[in-house]
Write a protein that binds this DNA or RNA. Sequence first.
DNA 1: GTATCCGTGATTGCATCCAATCTCAACAGG
DNA 2: CCTGTTGAGATTGGATGCAATCACGGATAC
Lengths: 232, 232
Amino acid sequence: MSEAAPRVAPITRDGNTSARVADAIREAILDGTYPPGSRLRQEEIAGRFGASRVPVREALKVLEADGLVTLVANTGAWVSRLTLAECEEVYQTRERVEPLLLRMSAPHLDTDAIDRLEVLATRMAETDDVEEFLRLDREFHAATYAGAETLVLGDLVTRLWGATQPYRRAYTLLIDAHRQRIVHDEHHMIVTALRENDLESAERTVESHIRRTRRLLAAHPEIFTDAAPAAP
Amino acid sequence: MSEAAPRVAPITRDGNTSARVADAIREAILDGTYPPGSRLRQEEIAGRFGASRVPVREALKVLEADGLVTLVANTGAWVSRLTLAECEEVYQTRERVEPLLLRMSAPHLDTDAIDRLEVLATRMAETDDVEEFLRLDREFHAATYAGAETLVLGDLVTRLWGATQPYRRAYTLLIDAHRQRIVHDEHHMIVTALRENDLESAERTVESHIRRTRRLLAAHPEIFTDAAPAAP
DNA sequence: GTATCCGTGATTGCATCCAATCTCAACAGG
DNA sequence: CCTGTTGAGATTGGATGCAATCACGGATAC
């Protein structure tokens, strides 16, 4: 490893080092610290967390199942890179699945929760910072789904969001998305539909919200052709 | 462990022991060898495969991400057991996602492939053996999706099938599903829709095919209350 | 100048060993 | 008779070390 990375976490012996490592790597991928195509070396990561390579390997396996990391036997691990086609596939899947999750969540959202959604939607329209926009966007949609008492579907949607996060960031940087009024209109439409308990309308709105993003991504294939050391 | 389990596989050193172990455990869960709720001991599995516990643990992590195994830190691993509500959730997800996968697959299925589908559907209607019925059913639907050149959606559907496989088996045993004419009618309807390149009809048919199964499962909650040593 | 073939260093995969934690049954107390 | 506690055994979690494999640069042939 090139430089002596400082230990990010103190030594804990709580019996789930690999889970901590997985969460930290996931976080680093989602916040852009590890961009798509970058190599993940076991020893470097292990050093960074004051752990051995065993829990790191387990974490990488988990992240591979999450679709965030691509492993090649005897060769190494890279942060997954999606092609445009794969990204569209994920978005199409989201178009089908997120309306369902919203439908399951809606009945359990009380007035307070919906008020908070409105606040988030408004703050999102006002911020100029891309990272904050992304964070609020994620938080908003997560909050719309928070009522769902699901075991598998919530995890699935989280995974789908995670897989496309780097491209959402690139696209937001490119498009200046917070300026696109339609995005915020859609968010407020979702809030209204939830307030009025109109599940049909809520479902249709998220669906077209996602579809619109997919089509915009498809209109900017250059996002997917950035050069960087990558796995095949 | 009670008896010395024979080595199932010869010693290979191809650099992916953990993948082999994961596949084998998955297989064992899907074919009912390890029923839901049964405990998976690392050492026993390691012995069975002539491997050490390290690759076994990696395999268990992967299977946990697949939803097939439930891990509890410092305690152990169990084959996942779904509640009726969770199972319905998975089925509802499948109702949304599989039509999409079929739509993506259909254009790439040639006449030969569709002929083979018809053969599978017919054989399924003729068999009396539950295990064979399950195998053919799985094979039929997998074949309808085989045209899809997807990276994530195919895996997702495979996962969803895997998570519900034990309950599909229990339900088939209970219901004598191969006698239910509607099942085979639906299969043939899918074949016909594919032959006529009618994507809308194909989508709607798989959707109701899955929905019907979900409702039948919901009508037999006793499937989910079998007593067995289980994780909380 | 280009393509092919090693050989060395770096990196991964796995087995073994030790520490930490949980399970479970026997036991003491109410 | 029931409940809470405790200690031995079983089981998991993680660190270290070694063998296998791969990446990559230099040398050689054409």
